[in-house]
């Protein structure tokens, strides 16, 4: 710690700021998380496990995993392709496309869910056509996946675009002049250069896909054992005043969030260390 007397660096100012920070973090961030686990386990580990083994809860867990397992690869491929397109090619509409990527960030998930309902629901433009062919997307698992893909599609692209812009194209061009094919350049040069940003984007996508509530709740219909994801399950249980069971399910989501945070910090820590090494030796 450097004790330089910068702006407001008197001891009492520092003390006040630190206390405010600590109190705030504990009250608003740490306490709820601890509380979730405390409530979830208050009826004992046996009850905890039993609740998780409840068929509806098990189904919610499996459905949530299914949504994540489909969403991640789709958005991974979409994100990489999009980042490649907007950073490696000049074309008209490029700027518009880059703005479009942000729509899912800007639009409230509930609105997104509603839009999907209007478009793909039984009465919707596309939905009624599909309904005639006995294909139901809304109030079924395909709809859950569709809105989740929509909500999480910017994460990977958003992580990759700034990095790929900063890294430029000359390494890839060097690869080409050395005789590599387009695929070899992508596989051996582009991909390794962005691998940590890619992983980071996947982690964020995963966290959001599992925890998404707004959009999913509009199009799900919350049918137990059919279209109830973990996040929706928590709400249903809470509405039934089955508080402990709600907390058990919530603790699962919280646990996933914590794992995500740890993974994210690990990646960031690794990246900073690598950058420091580069600066030292440069």
């Amino acid at each position: 710690m450097q004790h330089s007397r910068g702006i407001g660096q008197t001891p009492w100012v520092r003390l006040t700021l630190i206390s405010v920070g600590v109190v705030f973090s504990v009250l608003f961030l740490l306490a709820p998380v601890v509380f979730i686990f405390q409530r979830a386990l208050e009826s004992g580990v046996g009850f905890y496990v039993q609740t998780l083994l409840d068929p509806y809860t098990r189904h919610a867990i499996m459905l949530t995993l299914l949504v994540a397992v489909v969403t991640i690869p789709v958005n991974l491929i979409f994100g990489v392709a999009l980042a490649w397109l907007v950073t490696r090619f000049e074309f008209t509409g490029r700027k518009v496309l880059m703005t479009l990527i942000d729509i899912p960030f800007a639009v409230s998930p509930v609105v997104a869910g509603l839009l999907y309902l209007l478009l793909y629901g039984n009465q919707g433009w596309i939905g009624s056509w599909l309904d005639d062919r006995d294909i139901q997307l809304m109030f079924a698992w395909p709809g859950l996946i569709m809105v989740t893909i929509f909500v999480t599609c910017p994460f990977v692209a958003r992580e990759l675009i700034p990095l790929m812009q900063q890294q430029g194209t000359s390494e890839e061009e060097a690869g080409l002049t050395l005789g590599a094919s387009g695929w070899q350049v992508f596989r051996h040069i582009t991909l390794p250069n962005v691998r940590w940003a890619l992983l980071y984007g996947v982690i964020l996508t995963n966290a959001r896909a599992m925890g998404e509530f707004g959009a999913v709740s509009v199009i799900s219909g919350s049918i137990r054992g059919q279209t109830n994801t973990l996040a929706l399950h928590v709400e249903l249980l809470a509405q039934d005043f089955n508080i402990v069971a709600a907390f058990v399910s919530a603790s699962l989501l919280a646990f996933l969030a914590l794992v995500t945070l740890v993974a994210k910090s690990l990646i960031e820590w690794r990246e900073t260390r690598r950058q420091q090494q580069e600066e030292q030796t440069a």
């Binding site: 000359s170 390494e171 061009e173 060097a174 690869g175 080409l176 002049t177 050395l178 005789g179 590599a180 094919s181 051996h188 040069i189």
Partner: peptide, 15 residues
């Protein structure tokens, strides 16, 4: 990639 040129970039472009 088939032209058989060696190209050296201003900012090295090492992998």
């Amino acid at each position: 990639s088939d032209r058989g040129v060696g190209f050296v970039f201003q900012h090295y472009a090492l992998f």
